[in-house]
Simulated assay, not measured.
Amino acid sequence: MARDVQITIDCADPAKLAAFWAEALGYRLQDPPAGFDSWDQALEAMGVPLERRNDASALVDPEGRGPRLFFQRVPEGKQVKNRVHLDVRAAPGLQGEARMAALEAEADRLVSHGATRVRRHEPVPPLEAGHIVMADPEGNEFCLD
């Protein structure tokens, strides 16, 4: 039986990182619980103190196809290279220079939203199509593929 998957990301600032990934993936903030117009309203009703209201944030695919992303605040910072990372499919179906140009354009767009460019891997046919390694605003690596 197939299972739903949620990707959980430990971070220092869930709201900020969720905003970055919403921009990168075209996701949106998960709606507040039924009966509430906003998360602030819901958290207030739940008795969550102001200093704890950025402990978590969640994004959903507006078309319901992709996994939910959950961002949780943790006390420690990022220490080492990620063993698991996201690949953002920014150039599906493209090859060669057209592919790399599309990846470069997406890299520039994400840098303007707080990402850092790490390195470019050139295409090496027939197996490697080329990709760009990036880091999100908290230093988590991801690839533009």
Rank of each mutant, 00 (worst) to 15 (best):
M1A: 12
A2F: 10
R3K: 11
D4K: 14
D4E: 14
D4S: 15
Q6V: 15
Q6C: 12
T8P: 02
T8W: 03
I9L: 15
I9Q: 08
A12K: 12
D13A: 12
D13F: 08
P14E: 04
P14H: 08
A15W: 03
K16S: 15
L17H: 10
L17Q: 12
L17Y: 10
A18T: 03
A18K: 02
A19Y: 00
F20L: 06
A22L: 05
E23V: 14
E23G: 15
G26V: 06
Y27G: 01
Q30T: 13
Q30G: 10
Q30Y: 07
P32M: 04
P32G: 11
P33E: 07
G35D: 11
G35C: 08
F36L: 03
S38N: 10
A42Y: 10
A42W: 09
L43F: 13
E44P: 00
E44N: 15
A45P: 13
A45E: 08
A45C: 05
M46V: 05
G47S: 04
V48I: 14
V48C: 13
V48Y: 01
P49S: 08
E51K: 09
R53V: 01
N54V: 03
N54E: 10
N54P: 11
D55Q: 11
D55T: 07
A56N: 09
S57W: 02
S57E: 07
A58M: 10
L59I: 08
L59Y: 05
D61T: 03
P62K: 00
P62M: 01
G64P: 11
R68P: 01
F70S: 13
Q72P: 00
R73S: 06
V74E: 06
V74C: 09
V74Q: 11
E76K: 04
G77V: 02
Q79R: 09
Q79I: 05
Q79V: 11
V80M: 07
V80H: 09
K81R: 14
N82T: 02
R83S: 12
R83Y: 05
L86I: 15
L86H: 05
V88W: 03
A90C: 09
A90G: 15
A91I: 01
A91L: 02
A91Q: 01
A91M: 06
P92I: 06
P92W: 06
L94W: 03
Q95A: 13
Q95H: 14
A98Y: 05
R99T: 06
A102P: 05
A105W: 00
A105C: 01
E106F: 02
D108H: 09
R109E: 09
L110C: 06
S112H: 01
S112M: 04
H113Y: 12
H113I: 00
A115Y: 03
A115N: 02
R117Q: 12
V118A: 12
R119N: 13
R120T: 14
P123W: 07
P123Q: 11
V124D: 13
L127Y: 15
L127A: 14
G130D: 04
A135V: 08
D136Y: 04
D136K: 03
E138G: 12
G139V: 05
E141T: 15
E141A: 15
F142P: 02
C143Y: 08
D145P: 15
